[in-house]
Design a protein around this nucleic acid. Structure first.
Lengths: 159, 159
DNA sequence: CTGGTAACGTTATGCAATAGCGTATAAACT
DNA sequence: AGTTTATACGCTATTGCATAACGTTACCAG
C-alpha cells in the first residue's frame, strides 16, 4: 500500500539533520531552530513540499509564521545546498547528499509525487557537451523529468 | 548595440505566424485574432515573455484583457506546440519548429535574457537512458540551462 | 433560426514570493 | 561587563502568477 521503497524513513530524517548540523558547523553558518524545524518538515517524506504547507504546519505548531519567515529559511537551506527547489512544481525537496558539489537532476513521479534526485554522469556530460557546443557558460541547471516511477508502474491499479 | 545575432527579426515573426496558421488549419484548430496577437507579442524578440507583460501590452492596445484571457490563449498555444513555458522564469517563449515532435531543452542567458531552444541528440539520449536505468517512464521534461551565452561572453564589458 | 460548442469577458480568489522595516539576539571587541 | 555589529526573525503589506466560476458572444451545423 501507500509508500514504495518501504524503508525506515526516520533514518533519512536523522541523517539529513545530522549532515546539516555538521555542514553548518563546518562553515560557521547558523542552523537555528526555525531552520531545523523547516528542514525536518521538508524531510517528512520524499515528496516536494510547498512553501505554504510549511506555513500551515508552523501555524499548527503554535507559532504565527508569515511568508517571509518561511522563504528566508528556504533561502538559507538552498544556499547551504540542503534543499533544492523543484521549479516545475514550485516546491522544495531535501537534498540527499549536501556538501558534494553536484548539479540537480530529478525524477518526479506524477502519480505518487515522489521525487528522486539523480546523478547520472552520462547526463551531466551530455549537458556540458551541449553547452560547450553552443559556447554557452552554464551557471545553473534545471533538469526535471516528470513521469511515472517504477513502483507506480507495477501497481497500475491506480490508473 | 543591444542585440546579438543581428538578424532580420521580422522574418522570425512572419515565419512563426505563418507556421501557426498552417498547423492550425491542418488540425482544424481556431487560430483566432487574440491568439495571433499574443503569439506575435511573444515573438517580439528571443526573450521569454511573462503573462502579465502580455496583459499590459493588450491593455495598451486598447482592450481590457484580464488574466484568464491571456492564460487561455497561452494554454492554447502550448497545446498546439507553438510556445513553451520556461518554468524557471515563469515566462513563455515561441517554439521555432512547431509541428516537429520534440522535447524542449533551453539555453537561457542570464545577461541578455535570450532563450535558445536546443536539440541535442546526445542530451536527449542521455535523458532517456537515465530514465530507463531507473525504470522511470518519462512523460514530460523540463530542461533549462542558465548561464551566459557566447555573445555576452565576448562583450564582457557589461559585467 | 435554433441549438450547441468553443472563445472570450468579468469578477473574484488563491497560492507564490518579495518589499520594507522593526526587534531580538548572538558574536566580537573594547 | 558594556558596546558595537551582524544576523535572524517578526510583522504589515504588496506584488506576481494562475485559476475558479460564471456570463456573454461568435460561429457552425442542422
Amino acid at each position: 500500500m501507500g509508500h514504495s521503497h518501504s524503508h525506515d524513513h526516520s533514518i533519512c530524517i536523522e541523517t539529513a539533520i545530522a549532515e546539516a548540523e555538521r555542514l553548518c558547523a563546518e562553515r560557521g553558518s547558523r542552523f537555528t531552530d526555525l531552520r531545523r524545524r523547516i528542514l525536518k518538515m521538508i524531510w517528512q517524506g520524499h515528496k516536494a513540499v510547498k512553501a505554504y504547507d510549511l506555513l500551515d504546519q508552523l501555524a499548527t505548531e503554535g507559532g504565527s509564521a508569515k511568508p517571509p519567515t518561511v522563504y528566508r529559511a528556504l533561502d538559507f537551506l538552498m544556499e547551504e545546498g540542503l534543499v533544492h527547489k523543484i521549479e516545475s512544481l514550485n516546491a522544495y525537496i531535501g537534498c540527499p547528499h549536501p556538501g558534494d558539489n553536484h548539479v540537480s537532476q530529478f525524477l518526479i513521479c506524477d502519480k505518487c509525487e515522489t521525487v528522486k534526485e539523480l546523478s547520472s554522469d552520462e547526463l551531466t556530460t551530455a549537458v556540458m557537451n551541449a553547452a560547450k557546443q553552443a559556447n554557452f557558460a552554464i551557471r545553473r541547471q534545471t533538469l526535471e523529468l516528470h513521469g511515472v516511477c517504477a513502483n507506480c508502474q507495477r501497481n497500475r491499479e491506480a490508473a
